[in-house]
Amino acid sequence: MQRAIVAAALLVGAALPSAQAQNWPGKTVRIVVPHTAAAPFDGELRAFAQALTQVFGQPFVMENRDGADGAIGAEACAKSAPDGYTLCATTSSVVSLNPAIYAKLPYDPVRDFAPIIHVGVLNSVIIANPSLAANSFRELLQLARANPDAVTFATMGNTSFGSLLLGWLKAKQGIAFYGVPYKNATQGMTATVAGEVQVTTYALGQIVPMLKSGKLKALAMVGGKRSGFLPDLPTLAEEGLDMPVPRNWIGMFAPTGVAKDVIGRVNSEVAKVIASPGFKDKFMLARGVEADEFTGGSADAFAAFLKTDREEYARIVSAIGLARR
């Protein structure tokens, strides 16, 4: 009798996640985003939220929780109840780079986050104020080498590609820029247009009009391949940079413990949105976000990708000699 009771209890416990998924969602689902609403990929995430609202018949609401290099929003997501009513959407900087730089974080991305889906890669460009006396990345390096700590470069705190690039150039080539930290990429780009700083990085899609109007000039693509938006613009590798350039990806997560069926349903619907006609052109490519071989894949495939991604970021931080804080 006692064994039968224990077995029945185990069956009930095993059925709970499934029951959670069957009844989910029964109320508003929030999507915590540890980034500013001005982020280049914010529009894509809002399109996902709108699509999920239509599919599931309950509101999916974005909640931007910027600050502390994404740690504030990441902690809020990690410590939420694993009931499926809090999801997270963030980037490589929060999940892969922060742990390589900060010894103490209020969240552990491996322990606290369940990967849902990879939704794209943010393609960025090295851009400069038109007054800068360099028209290519090679010329930029020559200018900075001849004028140590004089060429100003807007970065977005410790966990931005700009910070890694400046650290790599100083450690590997002895080239020193003057880094100027800004709260987010939009502020850094605006400062570059205004001439407050000379160089920065920014998402490609949103700056094409400013490049065409002459308010900015492009020096190199950050990613591993040229873009259809600017096919004549070489990549950093083509310009001679020997630094490994990790992908600045965007992905969706849930707090660990959320039912796998819920994760599977969100994965399936978001993948459908990504594959839908016109979505990539309107909400991804126009904002500098592109799909790669991992975009729209399974949760397990995303988890496997993350392991490799974390290792790559850790190698770059180690090569720079950046001490964990």
Rank of each mutant, 00 (worst) to 15 (best):
D149S: 09
N123C: 10
A154R: 05
A128Q: 12
T155L: 08
L141G: 01
V119W: 07
G120P: 02
T155H: 08
I116D: 11
N147F: 03
P115D: 04
A134C: 07
I127K: 13
P115Y: 06
Q142A: 13
L141Q: 09
M156L: 14
A154L: 06
T152N: 14
I117L: 08
P148H: 12
P148R: 11
V151F: 06
L132Y: 05
H118N: 13
V119D: 09
P130L: 04
P115H: 07
I116E: 13
A146K: 06
A146G: 13
Q142V: 05
V110K: 15
A150Y: 03
I116Q: 10
S131C: 08
D108I: 10
S124L: 15
D112L: 13
M156N: 13
P109N: 10
L143F: 10
N147L: 04
A133F: 08
F137C: 00
N123R: 15
R145M: 07
P109S: 12
L141C: 02
M156D: 08
L122R: 00
L140D: 06
A133V: 10
I127A: 11
S136P: 04
S124F: 12
P115N: 01
S124D: 15
Q142C: 00
S131Y: 11
Q142M: 11
T155V: 11
R111H: 11
N123P: 04
H118R: 14
L141I: 09
G120V: 03
I117H: 02
V151R: 11
N147S: 04
A114T: 12
A114W: 11
D108V: 12
L140R: 03
L122M: 12
T155W: 06
I126T: 08
A154W: 08
T155F: 05
N147P: 00
F153W: 12
V119Q: 08
N135I: 09
V119P: 00
S124G: 12
A154T: 01
P115S: 00
A114H: 13
R138I: 02
E139F: 04
E139L: 06
N135W: 13
F137H: 01
A146C: 04
E139W: 03
E139I: 00
A146M: 09
R138G: 08
A146Q: 12
V110N: 12
A154Y: 07
S131V: 10
L143Y: 08
A128S: 11
T155M: 03
F137I: 00
A134G: 03
V121W: 00
L141D: 05
N135F: 14
N123L: 14
F113I: 01
I126R: 02
F153A: 00
N123H: 15
M156I: 14
A154C: 03
I117W: 02
S136L: 08
I126F: 15
D108T: 10
V151T: 01
N123F: 14
A150M: 09
F137R: 00
A146I: 07
G120K: 06
I116K: 06
A133C: 04
A144K: 10
V125Y: 04
H118K: 10
F137P: 00
H118T: 07
M156F: 04
V125W: 13
V151C: 02
P109M: 12
R111V: 04
G120Y: 01
N129E: 13
A134P: 02
Q142R: 07
A154N: 07
P109L: 11
I116V: 10
